[in-house]
């Protein structure tokens, strides 16, 4: 039980922001992030972010892949895939290589897709 850190299958450490915690400010991480609570600010990681069903995120999010099942007011930027689950609610723009939107998800914002290089993400950052 104690031989490995809390890891995903690819061996990255996992930060867990639980339902009873609020994070305010700029949160940077190297590993995966799982959000079940509240975040207000910015979220950045080199790996993946998973936003669970009852989570409330008022932040701009940058990650490799993003899975959203909760509520986000802010922009999502991904070099890989953004997956909006059926109870996802997002008010903000999306920049991603791939986008999956399940039936029932609500997305209000602009979407840019297709290019996987960083130029697209940097352009969006400059506009902001």
């Amino acid at each position: 039980m104690f031989k490995e850190k809390t890891t995903s299958d690819d061996g990255n450490t996992e930060t867990i922001i639980g339902a009873s915690v609020k994070v305010k400010g700029n949160f940077d991480s190297e590993g995966n992030i799982i959000i079940k609570g509240e975040v207000d600010g910015t979220l950045k990681t080199k790996n993946d972010i998973r936003i669970e069903k009852d989570a409330l995120v008022k932040a701009s999010i940058t990650a490799e892949n993003i899975y959203l099942a909760g509520q986000v007011q802010g922009n999502l930027k991904s070099k890989g895939t953004i997956h909006l689950a059926n109870n996802a609610r997002i008010t903000g723009d999306i920049v991603a290589q791939h986008l999956i939107i399940e039936d029932g998800a609500i997305f209000n914002g602009q979407c840019k897709m297709g290019r996987s290089d960083e130029k697209q993400i940097n352009e969006q950052a400059e506009i902001e």
């Binding site: 339902a19 009873s20 915690v21 609020k22 305010k24 400010g25 700029n26 949160f27």
Partner: peptide
């Protein structure tokens, strides 16, 4: 850089 604020359930 950021604040972590627990609620009363913690």
């Amino acid at each position: 850089s950021c604040q972590i604020i627990p609620d009363k359930k913690i």
